[in-house]
């Protein structure tokens, strides 16, 4: 007995590995651990491939079927355990991949935030230094707040609104803008978007909103600025541009799209609560719009 069990122990480890290996490499055909007896008394354990069936088939006596059932039950059990383990490993792999992704994202974001802060500090310093020279060039004064409101990525939206309004004020008193010229300018600026020349598009669109702060197409221009920034991606600026459309162009035909894209931008900025707010808003305010449908199907990453 003792000899047997010793023997068996060695075999056990072997068999364990064998079945595991087999199950893991799904392609390898079934290997079964069996004993082949030359005569019935001296049974020597032999490891064989794919011959279990023959042994069982050649033993004619009664309890064959249940015996097959039981042995294979154990085999099946192992098979299912391995299947389960495979699935478990796969889903764990999924979790690892997802977490690695999130870590990468967080790293990138903290770097972006730092850069953003740094650039704003530099701009502030520059603005202070330039404040003297600005007085000498009065036409630049109206332009600069507008630009900084978009590019400077002000954190508080109220500030943006104020900036845009103040920029718009002088334009109202200016002589009425030639509609055709405006349309042409818009199309020229938009052409850069279609040609995917994004830096040129940014310049042209900024120039456009500067020239026509209160034009028919100004909302469109801000919208496309947002789109371009989203592609670049300069998310803070994108947020700014979409916010301007949403907050200062009520009733604009790009409003539903801009609201949706603002939600998307917040999602990209890892602000799921804000993202959800705007994605919900677009569905409530414009239930029949394409943007609402897109918002509905959009999955916010958390």
């Amino acid at each position: 007995m003792l000899k047997y069990s010793k023997h068996r122990k060695g075999l056990l480890t072997k068999s364990f590995f064998v079945s595991l290996c087999f199950a893991l490499s799904a392609s390898v055909s079934a290997k079964t651990l069996i004993f082949q007896s030359k005569d019935n008394s001296a049974s020597e354990p032999v490891y064989e491939q794919e011959s279990g069936s023959q042994v069982q088939a050649s033993t004619p006596s009664a309890p064959v079927a249940p015996a097959v059932g039981q042995t294979s039950n154990i085999n099946s059990e192992l098979f299912f355990i391995v299947e389960e383990l495979k699935q478990e490993v796969m889903s764990l792999r999924g979790v690892v991949e997802e977490q690695a992704f999130e870590i990468r994202q967080l790293k990138r974001q903290s770097l972006d935030r730092y850069k953003d802060l740094d650039s704003r500090l530099q701009e502030m310093a520059k603005a202070r230094a330039e404040s003297v020279s600005v007085v000498q060039k009065p036409e630049l004064v109206t332009a600069s707040p507008n630009i900084s409101s978009v590019q400077g990525a002000a954190v508080v939206p109220v500030v943006v609104q104020a900036d845009v309004k103040s920029a718009a004020a002088p334009a109202e008193s200016a002589p009425s803008v030639d509609q055709d010229q405006q349309k042409l300018d818009y199309q020229n600026a938009y052409a850069y978007v279609t040609k995917k020349d994004f830096p040129a598009a940014v310049d042209a669109l900024h120039a456009f909103v500067e020239k026509y702060p209160d034009g028919d197409l100004t909302g469109n221009a801000f919208y496309w600025l947002g789109e371009v920034y989203l592609v670049l991606p300069q998310l803070e600026q994108a947020k700014q541009a979409f916010s301007i459309v949403v907050k200062t162009f009520p009733g604009h035909r790009k409003l539903s799209d801009a609201t949706y894209k603002l939600g998307v931008t917040y999602d990209r900025l890892q602000q799921p609560a804000e993202a959800e707010r705007y994605l919900k808003m677009v569905q409530e305010k414009f239930p029949n719009s394409t943007a609402a449908k897109l918002a509905k199907s959009y999955t916010i990453s958390r």
Binding site: L33, N40, S43, T59, T71, I74
Partner: peptide, 23 residues
């Protein structure tokens, strides 16, 4: 027949080994 039974025992032990661990 002995063989058959032996196999049962083995399979049982094998199963426990897998479930409990290799010790």
């Amino acid at each position: 027949m002995k063989l058959e039974a032996f196999k049962h025992g083995l399979a049982l032990v094998l199963a426990t080994t897998v479930l409990v661990g290799c010790e």
